[in-house]
């Protein structure tokens, strides 16, 4: 049987990636893996934007993706800097070791 890939396929793929990203953020304990999961979520949002943009024949979504990618890059810059300072201080990337601040 022949099927063509349509808008729904892209949207479902993006939704799945988004859920995988959320699951990663909630369950993983390593800072870098959490970080990667967040990037996965951002990219699934980008995929959704591009899919809609293509099927609506509207460039706004694609322009938005350029901005998201730039912002994500800036975020990575600051985020990795914070991760490096943490590694220098506690020599670990395990978030369970970050427990100085308590409720």
């Amino acid at each position: 049987m022949e099927t063509t890939v349509g808008l729904n396929h892209y949207l479902i793929l993006a939704a799945l990636l988004f859920c995988i990203g959320i699951a990663g953020v909630l369950t993983r304990r390593n800072l870098l893996i959490i970080f990667m999961s967040v990037e996965l979520m951002l990219n699934s949002a980008n995929l959704t934007l591009i899919a809609f943009s293509h099927y609506l024949v509207n460039a706004v979504g694609m322009v938005f993706v350029f901005f998201t990618m730039t912002v994500a890059a800036a975020e990575v810059g600051v985020g990795l800097a914070i991760v490096v300072t943490i590694f220098r201080n506690i020599e670990s990337l395990d978030i369970r070791k970050l427990n100085v601040l308590k409720h």
Partner: peptide, 15 residues
């Protein structure tokens, strides 16, 4: 960053 991703996804759906 987690929120940003959720926010962008929300904007994508709205778009």
């Amino acid at each position: 960053a987690f929120t940003t991703a959720i926010f962008v996804y929300g904007i994508a759906l709205m778009f």
